[in-house]
Design a protein around this nucleic acid. Structure first.
Lengths: 388, 388
DNA sequence: TGAGTATATTTAGATTCTATCTAAATTGCT
DNA sequence: AGCAATTTAGATAGAATCTAAATATACTCA
């Protein structure tokens, strides 16, 4: 039996450096005294940690103009995260398009680029090439290059386990996964982390969405496909093979015959009998908002369906809040009343339900947060690129 | 923003002592070299940790008779957990009865006592008295007294949050919760931890049941009531208010009209139309095993129901294994084939499904594990009773 | 008896924390 | 201008913990 343990003095410093960096990221500028309060360490320790981070280039010290705090006493040294000491890349890889964003160490998006795939069936090699181009373009917009990238997180619509391995899914994604990782690692020396897109959406909402600071949060990403990202006690749930919250099959439980997502169903249901469902989901949402009876009926069926999904996750994970992201977020204004009305019939623990404000960037924002988490936790192990 | 952090040297020692204790609990006797391998520490550190634990009475050193390992070289010092240095109490508090068990530091049950409540409606004060009597009797059987108790865990059929608070439930349990805690604390000076009974069942199965060593494990405790204990990545899921896995309302999702449990349904379904359902669940299980057609039909409906519940939790939490505990475990031989046949239709991630071997002690075993976890994590903070 | 071996113990050193004292820089009052 | 008060910085000493390396110990086997 391996006990994992083995705490070393170096671990302490890593933990404390992580705490200091995380604090500096959120506050911008902080004095030693601020950091003492935030970390619980003594002044000497705080200064030692800061000197360490200064020496390695992670933070810088401002001229001691006294901007904040009290006006008495010796002016405090003010430390600041060096935002452009390095960058992270967040990638959303969908079936039809991919988006890469570049963010600095404070999480500010400084570059963004999207590309469409020639078709949904292109080989992995070509797909990787397109993703790589998007990264290059985003980096160019950010005014930096591959050498400044400290970590990359890519979101996929497939189960990804805790170690970033893609399992349990089409051979296609499995090839793609390894291919992407090795291609970017070999070409640029990047550390590439993979994660499920709904999981990243959850991280995004908790960071900059409608679930800021909520430690038991579920994000339901529902567009062409449906998946839940579940955060419990501040940690992402993966499950044994990374499929936690993957609801491709949930329809079977509910007796609905299709494994497709919300937008698809809206189209399908709204189509005139006999005609092919060509109408766009957005149009259905708009028609419902305008009062079209057929569209209203469709929205009611959607609300029922989403309410059942929320209830199911509420029973199993008991989140404080559920955020709807993806295509449903567009129609949340119409859907939410119908959802909230039904929820008490399905579950005793009704969560707060909101719509995502992040729109299309829900996955990339989460990918940035994920990559930054990695970077902050490994700050003292990572070598910053020279000359910043 | 509070960063929680603040690692101190003392924390290192606590972590390492915990690792050493956990290893000693599982292996029985260990040498310094064994502990070096288990913890990754150097010999000097291992010995220092052991000296610390020796001085405080947690472990003892055996005469260096060379029993194990190689026969060459200087004989190793052999350390052993001092099993009777202290005890923990695990309590299962049901509606009709309560059971208390006493375990030593290795988890061996050394005392056990059950009591029935006069009725299900007795006031909290009386209920607490009965629980206290059961504890006293179990301690007497263990040949020890209240002063030797290091921690107590009690399992309730109610949501309990991470901090051991009972929320979201009948006023009755809330009174009972606080009452039990303060009564036992004041009377004996005990540290009382509360936890949901299904959660404890999960800990029990992972420790000494059919899910040993499984880090993504779900236990479905189904008797008069249904609840799931969910372990993800080795940690219990609680959710925002401790209701994660509480399935009192799941029937609504599935369109079944009753919130009652498996045993109740079996009785109900098996009853002749017009007659009151007086037959015992166990009799239905037996009749089905004997081939009675009506009973077989009931078991088939049960299998369908349980399969849907397993699928629901499999989709949300993606466990490696699901263990059936409580009354269903008795009939697992009959139920399992029907469950396994249905599962692939309900979920893409079919877990291994087994029946609990722990029987009635599923909750108390888990309660002991829970209390021992607390004790081991706080070994260096707890004062052992003198004279052991 | 001596070689070999595995372990224990000791010693020195590194890292990191805390605690405490003194010095510095600034404001505000007289 | 000078002084007190205030707040922070920096320096020093001390404690806890780890590692690493050298030395001592106790046993087996030939």
């Amino acid at each position: 039996m391996k006990a994992g343990g083995a705490a070393t003095p170096q671990m302490m410093r890593r933990v404390n450096a992580h705490a200091a960096l995380a604090f500096l990221r959120t506050t911008g500028v902080a004095t030693g005294t601020d950091l003492m309060a935030a970390t619980g360490l003594t002044r000497a320790s705080v200064i030692a940690v800061c000197e360490d981070l200064l020496r390695r280039g992670w933070i810088s010290e401002l001229d001691s103009g006294r901007e904040t705090g009290s006006l008495k006493g010796r002016p405090a040294r003010r430390f600041e995260l060096n935002p452009r000491a390095g960058f992270v890349v967040g990638i959303d890889i969908g079936a039809a398009t991919t988006t890469a964003v570049v963010a600095d160490l404070r999480g500010t998006i400084v570059g963004k680029a999207s590309r469409s795939f020639r078709s949904a069936e292109i080989p992995a090699r070509e797909r990787i090439e397109v993703v790589n181009q998007a990264c290059g373009e985003a980096l160019a917009e950010a005014g930096t290059g591959p050498a400044a990238v400290l970590a990359v997180t890519a979101g996929l619509a497939a189960p990804v386990d805790r170690d970033g391995n893609v399992l349990l899914t089409k051979q296609f994604w499995r090839k793609f996964d390894v291919g992407l990782r090795t291609a970017l690692a070999e070409r640029h020396g990047w550390r590439v982390l993979l994660e499920n897109d709904a999981n990243l959406a959850a991280l995004g909402e908790r960071w900059r969405g409608s679930g800021v600071g909520v430690n038991d949060l579920v994000v339901i990403l529902a567009s062409e496909r449906m998946g839940a990202g579940i955060i419990e006690s501040g940690r992402l749930l993966h499950g044994h093979s990374g499929a936690a919250g993957e609801m491709g099959y949930l329809d079977m439980i509910e007796g609905v015959g299709s494994a497709d997502g919300i937008a698809y169903l809206a189209r399908e249901w709204f189509a005139r009998p006999g005609e092919p469902p060509t109408v766009e989901a957005r149009e259905v949402f708009a028609a419902a908002a305008a009062g079209d009876p057929a569209a209203v009926l469709v929205m009611d069926r959607l609300a029922e369906r989403v309410a059942r999904v929320i209830a199911s996750v509420a029973i199993m994970a008991n989140p404080e809040q559920v955020v709807l992201g993806g295509a449903v977020a567009d129609s949340a204004g119409v859907l939410l009343p119908g959802i909230m009305e039904r929820l008490p019939r399905f579950t005793a623990t009704v969560p707060r339900v909101t719509a995502s404000p992040l729109g299309d960037s829900i996955v990339t924002v989460g990918a940035v947060r994920h990559a930054l988490d990695y970077v902050e936790a490994h700050a003292l192990d990572l070598e910053l690129p020279a000359g910043t």
